[in-house]
Write a protein that binds this DNA or RNA. Sequence first.
DNA 1: CAGTGAGCGAGCTTCCGCTTGACTT
Length: 766
Amino acid sequence: MVENLVIVESPAKAKTIEKFLGKDFRVISSFGHIRDLAKKNLGIQIDKGFAPVYEVPKEKVKVVNELKKNAAESKNIWIASDEDREGEAIAWHIINVLDLDPGNTKRIVFHEITKEAIEEAIKKPRLVDMNLVNSQQARRILDRLVGFEISPVLWKKVQPSLSAGRVQSVAVRLIVEREREIIAFRSDSSFRVTAIFLLSQKDNDTILKAEASQKFTREEDACKFLELCKEAEFKIASITVKPGTRSPAPPFTTSTLQQEAYRKLGFSVAQTMSVAQKLYEAGKITYMRTDSTNLSKLALAKSRDAIISEYGEKYSKTRQFKTKTKGAQEAHEAIRPSYPDKATIAGNQNEKKLYELIWKRTIASQMADAIIEKTNIGIEINNSPVLFSATGEVVKFDGFLRVYSESADQESNDEERYVIPPVKKGMPLYYNTVNATERFTSPFPRYTEASLVKKLEELGIGRPSTYAPTISTIQNRGYVVKEDRPGEKRKTRLLELKSGKINASTKTEIAGKEKSKLFPKDIGMIVNDFLVENFSEIVDYNFTADVEMQFDEIAEGNLKWTGMLDKFYSSFHKTVETSLENKNKKTGARVLGNHPETGEPVSVKMGRFGPVVQIGNQTEESKPKFASLLKSQLLETITLDEALNLFRLPRKIGEYEGAEMVAGIGKFGPYIRHNNKFYSLKKGVDDPYVITLERGIELIVEKTNSEKQKVIQDFGDIQVLNGRYGPYITKEKLNYRIPKGTDASKLTKEECLKIIDTSEKKQKNS
DNA sequence: CAGTGAGCGAGCTTCCGCTTGACTT
């Protein structure tokens, strides 16, 4: 018999707590929820007051048995799941599934994993709070109703296997609407005038960079202004110095960690979570799924010590940050190093990098403000009312900046902080260069995974444990895609005034280049439009916030959960039925115009295998012609010309060795086909619309040669091949690594078999 | 690996939030 059994949600937490509590306590984990609505069917008996049908999922049976066994061996049972509505529900499910006595099972909570906090919690056990449990049940059931009633509508009206939900559908909506803003955006340009001034005509080294207060829409006006500058006298008219301070950002929550790890380390949201999980399991950081910016007293004290010993007393400033996020439940601490005195850790590169980021952010949050001095200098011109101004910044005391400063989402175009040379009012200045550069306005940027998480968090949609999975879901469903886009060339004009001469030139720059951004796909746009038309309430940006207010009321005991669901469902279910009334499917169909030669209608729509262009209609005599859209094209924006162009491929380009050569664009990009073999065209070099027979032959020869080099040794069923990462052995479609330092060209068949054998054994053991 | 665009239609797909491994490459 064990005196005390403590049940927590996470096994890593169990391990830590067991150390604090000593011999009389055994600590085990439930691994999160142990029970959920039935997987099959709805799992809700709507006509019986929304009675949920709970079941222990297959993968949780083992855990549940383990919990039962331990419970039977223990005198006192303490349930220490998190203090939020999910945690409360977990406690309630445990009591039910293990058949414990609700009056005699002790519910305890703590927000930080410190000895003090746990001992304190043990002193104040309470009972399970049924109001909180009911608010979780309302949340769970509402999500099931929304997801499992709307998704089947999509299967009927749009395509099978699609999905909709309170969280994912809003995430898709954000991306679709942003894309439409970008599509509708028309760029403007204007000329921005910048100058480099010299303090004396003799000294070329001390310069003052400044910008004109006025921009010019037309090139002639910019040019006229430069003409004035050519003759002008410049003088310093004003100097203003403003002191200011800058404060550190709060310690990391899941969302801010994901954002910073993306901006500073280039990690995807999923990658950040997986590395953080490793650090957590190794005891190096606190829990990584949190919405709280709170630090434990212990962490505050340890950080303070670390700062004072490393940087001195004046760099320390203990702060506690208030969590501002909508709907935050604050069951945990912020994400911080377990031991703030350790600036670095052992581990792989990514673990080290992420740890250091967390360490810096935490430490910086406990450091003094930086003291800044901003200087603004006004420069007058004697022959024009336009002013120039120079701004500079001097850091008087670096404070937290010594360790860390937060990155911004968009790289700003402004030049980095710049130190103004010593100047005096009335001082004359001499221009070195004055440039008028054409600058284009840009639309709102597309979302990255991380900036989407930020936006969702602002709207109070989703939870720390679901940000990463939500982003995967909307990509897996094909609603959105994360990719790079090359951008387009654009011409910009540049006027340069130097040594009394104005020089005009045209430059090309790349506009709209994107890296790892989220783009909507046609099916995402179609589903979104369908949901906005039929379920505007659910995909409203405020829907979650509205129902969250009601869940809070339930948790407070002011609202009955079944009543809340009843009210929601009666109107929601009506919209489900209305949405099924319209017989037509939603295909995103759009008529582009008529074929210039045959006059047949040309249209686009979502077909069975993806978006297609169609020429003509199905009649008794004739079948329509079809062509797939390219990956970069959207149903919504494709033009008649672009659509017709798709029918020019596949294209015969000639004959080679008695067989036809054809150029086309396939699933994996542009190709030529010859003798039923495919050869990829070179990116940025070849174009399937214009590629010639000669170039095609070149590509075929090139590929055949490299294939020849690919086979190093051939023993029939076993081959030694040259791959992307060097030589390897292949047998029955399985690949094996060759030990380092082996000469692949001298391997015998026996040696190969030996390598295969040992590597298979290794795999079995690991 | 790279095509297809209708055809009978059974049976399946799907949500959000808690937690980790078990998988494969």
